[in-house]
Simulated scan of single mutants.
Amino acid sequence: MKRDFKLIVLFILNISTVSVFAQQEANFSQYMYNSSIINPAYSGSREDLTIYGQFRSQWVGMEGAPQTASLTVHSPFTYSKLGYGVSIISDKLGAMNDNTVAVDLSYTIDFDSDYKLAFGVKVSGSFLNVDYNKLTIYDETEGTDNLKNQFNPNVGAGLYLYSEQTYFGISVPYMLEYDRGNDQLYATMKRTMHFYGTFGHVFDLSREIKFKPTLLTKVIQGAPLQVDLSANFLFSERFTVGASYQFDSSVSALVGFQISEQFFVGYSYDSNVTKLAHYNSGSHEVFLRFELFNKYKRFTTPRFF
């Protein structure tokens, strides 16, 4: 298979056109460790200054395959019910490079004696770059100008209900729908809304072992319902091991280690369960979380989400 053909196929798979609908937003297998990417109401919920970095290399072995990096900082405002977050996401796919900068603001109230309810809004801007020189243009008479930092603003919102052991979330991180690209039909993309629903609960199996199942559902117009199920075990508040399954797509395994009270590092590997598995060697994801603890925080035990 020629390199240019691979780039074209991957480019089409990651965008929505008139006849093709697919996931457009950055995809991470271990979303549960950095939920502010999909839900702005999560920002500040850990009651610490949290810095989170993540990198995902998808479909290794296929030229032009997706590579996504993110950096997030979020924290509560001291003596306040407000929280904030700032995130940067760089999503590369073949000829396309999409960079997004977002600012989150959350407001949290005591729902009852055990639960808190947070409301969040996200304001973001994306900068799309497309280098058509990396593609094969069969009809060069039409001409195609490269895209350079095509800017599109957006807004999003979410709700996050949580306690020390349970959480529920619903969100739409990017609400505005619009066309992106050049005027030529084949170079035009339409961004659509993604609706997310999340759930997780932590079971104390013993004094040393915690078990956390999680659920993510994703609804995209014109695409099948996406469901992710995961199960993680935490041993002695230090070592994490788990697995997840994305229906009709992939399976993944995770390991993580709490190096110190401030540092947590993790790695996951995904394997496709579709025919695409014949053309790649899986996906790799690494992440690092650093926290500066707040002595005024409400939750005194370490959070597993």
Rank of each mutant, 00 (worst) to 15 (best):
G83K: 10
G181H: 03
I89W: 04
Y52I: 08
K81H: 09
I109N: 06
T50L: 06
Q54Y: 01
L82M: 09
L215F: 15
E140V: 09
Y162K: 00
G64Y: 00
L229H: 08
I51V: 09
N27C: 11
S29P: 05
D131G: 01
Q221M: 14
A243S: 14
R191E: 14
A26F: 12
F290R: 03
S281F: 12
S281R: 07
V103M: 09
Y52E: 11
N34E: 00
L105S: 05
Y269D: 00
I109G: 02
F235K: 04
F195V: 13
Q184G: 11
A187M: 06
F11C: 05
D139K: 02
D114G: 15
G256I: 01
F287Y: 13
N129A: 13
L13K: 12
Y196Q: 04
E63I: 10
G266D: 01
E63G: 09
V9L: 10
E285H: 11
V18Y: 09
D183N: 13
S252R: 04
T198H: 06
T136K: 03
R56V: 06
P66Q: 11
I37G: 01
L215P: 12
G256F: 01
S16L: 04
V241T: 14
Y167F: 14
N294M: 14
S80F: 05
I220A: 04
Q184P: 05
L225A: 04
V241D: 02
I88P: 04
E63Q: 07
N39M: 08
Y132K: 04
P76I: 02
S271D: 01
F247R: 14
F55K: 14
T198F: 07
D183A: 13
F111M: 08
V155R: 07
N129R: 13
F287Q: 15
R289D: 00
S230W: 10
G158A: 06
G197S: 00
T141H: 08
V255C: 12
F264Y: 13
Q226T: 15
K148Q: 13
S252M: 03
S283T: 08
S57V: 03
Q221E: 15
Y160I: 00
L128S: 00
Y84K: 13
V9C: 07
N182M: 12
Q30F: 08
R303I: 15
A95V: 09
N97D: 15
N280V: 09
D91Q: 12
K212R: 09
F127M: 15
Q150W: 07
Y79V: 10
Y33C: 09
S271W: 06
T240S: 05
F151M: 11
L216H: 14
N272D: 05
D228I: 03
R303H: 11
N232A: 08
A102V: 05
E237I: 10
Q30T: 03
A253M: 12
M32F: 15
V172L: 07
E291V: 11
T17E: 00
F293M: 14
L234G: 01
F77G: 07
S19Q: 14
A26D: 12
T301Q: 12
G125F: 04
D139A: 00
V241Q: 02
P40A: 02
N14D: 02
V273M: 10
S45M: 03
V219M: 15
R298L: 10
M1T: 00
S43N: 05
N34I: 06
D104L: 13
G158R: 03
T100L: 10
Y174P: 10
